[in-house]
């Protein structure tokens, strides 16, 4: 019995290490944290951002795996939803950049001076696509 529990713990721990390392590697490749520190000029605080990621991941894992419920007002969801959205937006933008969409597009179709408008097409497309998904598509 004890050995089984120990074995299960070992497997769980190994899984956690693999997923955690992968998650951090993914974030590092996309360079979201450097980007945010660069924008806010807080390079000296990067240690705290690292811990924010680590704690956020760990605490959320614990809470969701134990199916906790807080019975708070639904208005708490507004800042949470906004934060979720911004994070995914940063991820999406970073991914677009990694795969070199804009330089090629701008060069090919010769709209270097209209890059901002092109960027807006993608941003508004994301917002509208997401709103359409939640307010119409899921009810179909």
């Amino acid at each position: 019995m004890t050995s089984r529990v120990l074995f299960a713990m070992l497997i769980g721990f190994a899984e956690g290490i693999a997923v955690g390392a992968g998650f951090v590697a993914f974030l590092t490749v996309l360079g979201i944290i450097p980007r945010l520190t660069q924008l806010s000029k807080t390079e000296h605080l990067i240690r705290f951002y690292e811990w924010s990621i680590v704690l956020g991941t760990t605490v959320t894992s614990l809470i969701t795996l134990r199916n906790a419920q807080f019975h708070l007002s639904a208005f708490w969801l507004i800042p949470i939803g906004l934060a979720c959205g911004i994070f995914i937006g940063l991820l999406a933008a970073a991914l677009t950049e990694v795969i070199n969409v804009f330089p090629i597009l701008a060069k090919r179709i010769g709209v270097v001076d209209k890059l901002l408008i092109i960027l807006m097409a993608i941003v508004l497309g994301k917002i509208c696509g997401s709103l359409f998904h939640w307010t119409y598509f899921v009810f179909r």
């Binding site: 807080f70 639904a74 939803g81 959205g85 995914i88 993608i122 941003v123 307010t135």
Partner: peptide, 26 residues
């Protein structure tokens, strides 16, 4: 957060959608 089952949590999803755009622009 609320302890209530809601099949369409728009209170979360609309800020989320706007946040998507803000994140990309940022």
């Amino acid at each position: 957060i609320t302890g209530i089952d809601n099949p369409t949590p728009l209170m979360l999803q609309i800020p989320y959608s706007l946040g998507l755009g803000i994140g990309m622009v940022l």
